[in-house]
Each structure stands twice: as structure tokens, then as C-alpha cells.
Design a protein around this nucleic acid. Structure first.
Length: 112
DNA sequence: TTGCTGACCGACG
DNA sequence: CCGTCGGCCAGCA
């Protein structure tokens, strides 16, 4: 009742991403699953595409794919921008891949 | 109005 | 092991 409201699917996506603690990352599938549809992971990615204009300041760089790979790095206006942001939070990135991904992985609706 | 695409994931052959 | 396909919601031509 406090976590979910009468909002659209991708509106929830923004809410979850905003809840991601600093130094942590989550996945599209985790968010989609948290929303009730794991198959909607594509919509999560689509939502992030417009996140910059729909909700500026959204830590979309904390959202990666299931492999912990920075798939949407080129959507930040650069190729290493997303990596710089993650490293700025203490997250190590190697070959566009998050190190200790499982350790810094933040599960929405679980730790919250 | 119809159809396609999208920063994915999981299953099937 | 690797390639292919379906699924979910929303925006755009």
C-alpha cells in the first residue's frame, strides 16, 4: 500500500531505481520481477531510455543487465560515462562488467 | 489504426 | 555450444 500505488508499469520502475542505495546495482529482470512481470524486462530498459526526460537525476547507471554488464552505457551520452559513475560510487568495472556484482546487487522489495 | 521497436530474460532445438 | 523466438508495455511513423 505504501510501495505500490495506482501508477503505470514504468512509473514503478522509476520509483524502484530511485530507491537503489548508493554503491549498489540492480538488474532489469529484478525490477521487472518486483513489478510482477519478469518478462517485462524490456519495458524496464525502454523506461530507462526516456528516464532522462521523464525523471532527470535517475540513477540509471545503477541498473545493469543480468550479467552485470553495462549494456546501456552508450545511452549516457558516452561510452565510459556509466562506468565512471559506478566507479565513483566505489563499484569496480572491468570490460564493461561489474565486479562483485552479486555482492553489490540490490534486490528491490527484498532489502526494502 | 496497425505494426514495429526497445538499455532484457528465459526457454527450446 | 550457439542461434532463434516469444513475451511484456508504451511510444512513434
Amino acid at each position: 500500500m505504501t510501495s505500490v500505488e495506482n501508477i503505470s508499469f514504468f512509473q514503478k520502475v522509476y520509483a524502484v531505481v530511485h530507491k537503489i542505495p548508493r554503491g549498489r546495482v540492480t538488474t532489469y529482470g529484478a525490477i521487472a520481477s518486483y513489478l510482477g512481470s519478469k518478462s517485462s524486462s524490456r519495458m524496464v530498459g525502454w523506461a530507462m531510455n526516456h528516464s532522462h526526460q521523464a525523471d532527470p537525476g535517475l540513477p540509471a547507471h545503477r541498473v545493469v543487465n543480468r550479467q552485470g554488464m553495462l549494456t546501456g552505457k552508450h545511452h549516457f551520452g558516452g561510452n565510459h560515462i556509466m562506468q565512471q559513475l559506478l566507479e565513483n560510487e566505489g563499484i569496480k568495472i572491468t570490460d564493461d562488467q561489474v565486479m562483485d556484482f552479486k555482492k553489490i546487487f540490490w534486490d528491490p522489495g527484498r532489502e526494502v
